[in-house]
C-alpha cells in the first residue's frame, strides 16, 4: 500500500467538554482529513478524555480518537475496560496516550503493561454466540493475566472484551519520559532523541510549512505530523487545506489497517483484534 502521511492534532481546550463546541471540532477534523485527534496532551488535560472519546465515537466515521490517560489518576482495570468499550463503539478507531501527570518514575510504563496484559486475557476468537448450542463463548480463550508491576497488580480477566484493534493505538509523546520502545506512534520534537515506535510524527505548530513536511516525509525521516492546536475550530480547516496534497486516500478497515500499523509483535500475545460472529 501507499505509505500514508499521518495527520494528527491535539486539542486541550476546556470547551471541548461542551457538546456544541466538541461536535464542531470533530466535524472540522474529519472534514480536514485528519487521521488522529488526540484529546488533551501532557500538561494540559482539562477533561477526562476517556469519557470524551466515547461521546466522539458515534459523532465520527473515519477519525481516530485518542484519549490521554493520566498514569497517576487512573487504574489500568478501568482504563482497559473503557477503551475496550470505546473501540467497539468506534469500530476500531481508538488510541490512547499515557501522560505521566506527576506520576512517579515507571508508573506510566506499568499502566501500559497492565492494560496490555488485560486486553491479551481475551482471545480474538473468544465469542461464539451460538443460540442453538447455547455456547456464548469459548472459555479456554479467557485467561487471568495475573499482572504484577511495581504500582499495579491486576489479576484479571478484565470484564471487557479484547478490542477490535487488539490494542488501541499507543501514542507516546517523545517529550515525556516513558520507557516504552514498542509504541505504535511517537510524537517527536526536532533535536530530541525519539522513542522507538512504528511511526514517527513530528510535533509542529499550526503554521508549519507544508513543503518542509513533504520533504521530510519523502526522505522517510517522519511518517506524518502532529499539530498542537490552540484554536481548533479555525486551525483545523486551514491545516487540512494546506496539507491536502499530502493526504492520499486510505484503505478501508480499522485504524490499524488504514494507517499501516499492525500490533507490534512484542506488545501482544496475538496479532488480531476481537471478531464478533455474525448472527443469521
Amino acid at each position: 500500500m501507499t505509505r500514508p502521511f499521518i495527520l494528527s492534532a491535539s486539542v486541550a481546550e476546556p470547551a471541548f467538554a461542551v457538546p456544541d463546541h466538541a461536535r464542531a471540532v470533530l466535524q472540522a477534523a474529519e472534514a480536514a482529513g485528519f487521521d488522529l485527534l488526540m484529546l488533551g496532551r501532557s500538561g494540559e488535560r482539562p477533561f477526562d478524555a476517556q469519557v470524551l472519546v466515547a461521546w466522539a465515537a458515534p459523532m465520527t466515521t473515519t477519525l481516530g480518537v485518542v484519549a490521554t490517560v493520566p498514569a497517576s489518576k487512573a487504574h489500568p482495570f478501568h482504563v482497559a475496560r473503557a477503551l475496550s468499550a470505546v473501540d467497539f463503539l468506534a469500530t476500531g478507531r481508538t488510541g490512547w496516550s499515557v501522560v505521566p501527570e506527576g506520576a512517579p518514575d515507571g508508573m506510566a510504563e506499568d499502566m501500559i503493561g497492565a492494560a496490555r496484559a488485560l486486553w491479551d486475557g481475551w482471545g480474538s476468537d473468544t465469542l461464539i454466540l451460538d443460540k442453538e448450542s447455547g455456547r456464548y463463548l469459548d472459555a479456554s480463550k479467557v485467561k487471568a493475566s495475573n499482572y504484577k508491576g511495581a504500582y499495579f497488580k491486576v489479576a484479571g480477566p478484565v470484564n471487557a472484551m479484547r478490542p477490535p484493534l487488539g490494542h488501541p493505538l499507543l501514542v507516546i509523546d517523545g517529550d515525556d519520559p516513558i520507557a516504552i520502545d514498542d509504541a505504535d506512534i511517537a510524537l517527536v520534537s526536532d533535536g530530541t532523541a525519539a522513542p522507538q515506535a512504528t511511526k514517527r510524527l513530528i510535533k509542529v505548530g499550526a503554521d508549519a510549512d507544508a513543503a518542509m513536511l513533504a520533504e521530510r516525509f519523502e526522505s522517510r525521516e517522519i511518517d506524518g505530523a502532529h499539530f498542537t492546536l490552540n484554536d481548533a475550530l479555525s486551525e483545523l480547516p486551514q491545516i487540512g487545506a494546506r496539507l491536502a496534497a499530502l493526504l492520499a486516500p486510505r484503505p478501508a478497515g480499522n485504524l490499524r489497517a488504514r494507517l499501516g500499523l499492525p500490533i507490534p509483535s512484542t506488545a501482544s500475545n496475538q496479532p488480531g483484534g476481537a471478531v464478533i460472529p455474525e448472527i443469521a
Binding site: A57, A85, V86, L89, Y136, A139, A144, N159, A160, M161
Partner: peptide, 23 residues
C-alpha cells in the same frame, strides 16, 4: 477460575456506553 461458556459476558464499561448514547 473458569469462565462460564453459557452466560452472556463480558459487560462493557457503563460510563463509555452511556456517554456514547448521549451523543
Amino acid at each position: 477460575g473458569r469462565a462460564p461458556e453459557r452466560l452472556a459476558m463480558p459487560t462493557l464499561d457503563p460510563v463509555s456506553l452511556l456517554t456514547a448514547m448521549a451523543a
